[in-house]
Write a protein that binds this DNA or RNA. Structure first.
Lengths: 118, 118
DNA sequence: TTATTATATACCTATATAGGAATATGTCAA
DNA sequence: TTGACATATTCCTATATAGGTATATAATAA
């Protein structure tokens, strides 16, 4: 079997770096396809194709504006990724590293109390 | 061209749902390959293969223990994903939704002051 | 109408999977 | 040693991309 489809969920859609770039541009606001082509230096068909994937997983919405199509970010579609990461945050959080320091201090104090002089 | 390699970064490694499942098990602590096979109901070779991908992107570390190999999570490798999401959090945060409510209220008050009676 | 601009789709190709099955490697026990 | 267990690797196949190029569709302008 091949890989899970890119349009399966936000995880897969966002695995492609150029699609992340597109989203990063759209955070600032609505953009036409051509804007994205210019800003990212990609070929127009590939931009359209990436946008289709992003649209299929709900990461962007479109609006017709004359002959342009304005794409706009829908950040909510990223929440499942953020939610999944919740269980792991503690592993790199400053707050937890601070806690680790405290625990290390406690251990050292214990060791000192225990009598190890070296 | 095909898709970006699964071993390119955490984004791609984690796009595969079964690899996320493996990580979800490892949050609780170290596990042998067979533990994972049993807990997840997957075939042993596929588990080994998924673990290889996770190892190549630094998401897990291994330790030899007799004939077992104990795998352990390295959550730090997920931080780049979390960092990337930082720019988007505001779009689904309660705090921002609360702010939206406030802004809506303001708008309504304005409208009322403006004289729209209907 | 025709031309021009903006975007989407179709077609082609190379490539990297993920799973299944078989087998290799490695470690311990008898 | 031989056998049993634990894990990794190899080989095979079907499939879904991503990029390139060409073309279709759609909307405006002349």
């Amino acid at each position: 079997m091949a890989r899970v489809a890119t349009t399966t969920d936000a995880f897969n859609a966002v695995a492609e770096p150029k699609r992340r770039q597109i989203l990063d541009v759209l955070v600032a606001g609505e953009r036409s396809v051509n804007d994205l082509v210019t800003l990212l230096g990609l070929a127009q068909p590939q931009v359209s194709k990436h946008l289709r994937v992003l649209r299929e997983v709900g990461l962007v919405d479109v609006r017709d504006d004359g002959r342009q199509r304005m794409y706009r970010l829908n950040g909510h579609a990223l929440k499942p990724i953020h939610d999944w990461l919740k269980n792991y945050e503690q592993m790199w959080n400053d707050r937890f590293e601070a806690l680790d320091d405290v625990l290390d201090d406690l251990k050292q104090t214990e060791a000192a109390d225990g009598g190890s002089s070296k």
